[in-house]
Amino acid sequence: MMRVLVVDDEPLARDGVRARLAAQPDVSCVGEAGDGDAAAQAVQALRPDLVFMDVQMPGPSGIEVLRRLPPSVRPLAVLLTAYDHFAVAAFELQALDYLLKPIDDSRFQESLDRARAALRHRSQPGVDTAATPWVERFSVRIGQRIAVIDASDIDWIEAQDDYAGLHVGSRVYLLRESLHQLSLRLDPRRFVRIHRSTIVRVDRIAEMEALSNRDCLLRLRDGTPLRASRTYIDPLHAALAAR
């Protein structure tokens, strides 16, 4: 059972997070707090696995509360805010995710799934509890050979039925894994989902063009055009702000 603490100075916002958590059979909401000082006390007393932490609130900010905790006892954190300019601090703290208000249901579910994956990683014997589970390389079968692909070489990734297509320059390598499961294993500081079927490496983005329906057209450094869905625009802006 994943133990979750909800921190937000707005009661309605806390209610919204709690309602979403109540629909998760493997999640227990162990407490809540409405300001920075109460949040710090609750984290120390309850030792949650995961905290949904508002950034701006009375007393110490959510970011300051997390900074004061030693990494060895700091819970996994999903930061909540109405502004994307806190993204840099979020990534410095290795926050698990960064949700902009109003919270999108599909993004909320992705955050929980990422927390589940991180907790499974931490529970493995001999694993440093402060370590992150982000994958650094992939083994991909090509005929009778196995190719090893470094995550740092990937430009973007697309869903291809039951596979994920890893685009490395002009080559595409098929990895037998769903895009959703793969997204949970990629470092969110380097890779961001921009569509249900597309993940892009942030430092490969050269330019963005806003479209009339709040979608965006991205162009990568090699000229590749990719469409970013409006559902993922806010996390995309947050990831770019953290570069």
Rank of each mutant, 00 (worst) to 15 (best):
W134I: 10
D215I: 01
L46M: 11
R171N: 15
R14T: 00
R120T: 11
D153R: 08
A13T: 09
V88F: 13
I199F: 05
R67W: 13
H237E: 07
V4N: 01
G36V: 10
Q109A: 14
D215K: 00
P225C: 12
L179C: 00
S152L: 12
D97P: 12
R67N: 15
H195F: 05
P11C: 11
Q24C: 15
P71S: 08
P188W: 05
F191D: 07
L119R: 01
A228G: 03
S183P: 02
R185V: 05
L220S: 02
H121K: 01
Q24W: 06
V88N: 09
P70Y: 06
D128R: 01
L175C: 05
V4S: 00
S183M: 04
M2K: 13
R122W: 14
F86T: 06
P60I: 07
Q144R: 11
S229N: 13
D155H: 15
P125V: 01
P225I: 12
L112F: 03
V30P: 02
Y232Q: 01
R68K: 11
R219Y: 02
N213P: 06
P25L: 10
P225E: 15
A77T: 15
R74Q: 14
A159T: 14
H180S: 14
H180G: 08
I154A: 05
L96I: 12
D8V: 15
R193G: 05
L112C: 02
A117G: 01
D113G: 04
D187M: 09
C216M: 08
D203E: 14
R185Q: 13
A131D: 08
L226I: 04
N213G: 07
L80Y: 00
D150H: 09
R185C: 09
